[in-house]
Design a binder for these strands. Sequence first.
DNA 1: GAAAGCCTCGTATAAATATGCAGGCTTGTG
DNA 2: CACAAGCCTGCATATTTATACGAGGCTTTC
Lengths: 163, 163
Amino acid sequence: MRGDIVAGNGTDPELGTRKRFRQGQILKLISSENISSQDELRRRLGHVKLQVTQATLSRDFHELKVVKTAAGYKPLTAVSEEAAALPPLGRALREYLLDLRPAANLLVLKTPPGGAQPLAAAVDAERMKEIAGTIAGDDTILVITPSPAARALVQKRMEELLR
Amino acid sequence: MRGDIVAGNGTDPELGTRKRFRQGQILKLISSENISSQDELRRRLGHVKLQVTQATLSRDFHELKVVKTAAGYKPLTAVSEEAAALPPLGRALREYLLDLRPAANLLVLKTPPGGAQPLAAAVDAERMKEIAGTIAGDDTILVITPSPAARALVQKRMEELLR
DNA sequence: GAAAGCCTCGTATAAATATGCAGGCTTGTG
DNA sequence: CACAAGCCTGCATATTTATACGAGGCTTTC
């Protein structure tokens, strides 16, 4: 027996209308203004005659699939959810690469112990035509290209993937 | 003078290498396993000989633009960031629509007071060929279509946008 | 029309995340 | 070498978010 004044469906003429309206306002506010917390949003909604608690907004965000990003709250559509994942090689490089050294037509990649095999596999999987082949030990990979020019190209691509 | 044992750059052979490696592992872990908090992630990283605090992971997430979604942590690429926004009509409907009533070849939309004009503008902007025209008052919009069939189509589309 | 099932939502609080501060590294620079 | 600057990070804690619980309203069912 803690709460006293409770809401129910409030003054709803139709079922769930208040909620839907509020969620619409939420989407509008987060896309226009720069809101930095659910509590701030709660205060803004007050201006529009919508009184709710932070808890409700947390639930709304969940339903609307709104996430908090460095640049404010964003609705996450099905589309954008899929797009979220690094390409294999990019991920492998980030994961394992410690050093990348050019040597004429060769590229020497250093990894932590045991990292060479998996990273080499990712490089191979990329099937870059500039790569003649790879040899991987325990913490070192030799990437062999036909020429220094090709090597430069491969190197550039890897550096971009690391960004 | 609170902390005693502090990390600095640790055993880094190269500057910032440890950090990069850790961030790679983070991306790998969050994409494969189902991690539900930064602290859980911290424990997982322990298995791979990476000792860090939750605070550091929070900072890593920020740098990697990783956000927390209902379905785990996701890296937010530039691409997916753009995709985040509802189409105008969908947003307007969510924002204003209280009720949607069919009537022969007409569709009556109810909004909160003052909502009719903006919503009607969004409907007009959509330029659906099944819509002959709209008339908006203060809290009601009349959408006029040539036939009941066209009306059904428009209605269906709006309901989908609301879903 | 009472019971059961469902929503929606507030309260209180637990859980998760972000951050101010300080210290250890490393890298210049005079 | 001493000193300053910049980084990465831990610690402690402030801030933010999620949730267990229960209330009240609505609808459906017998």
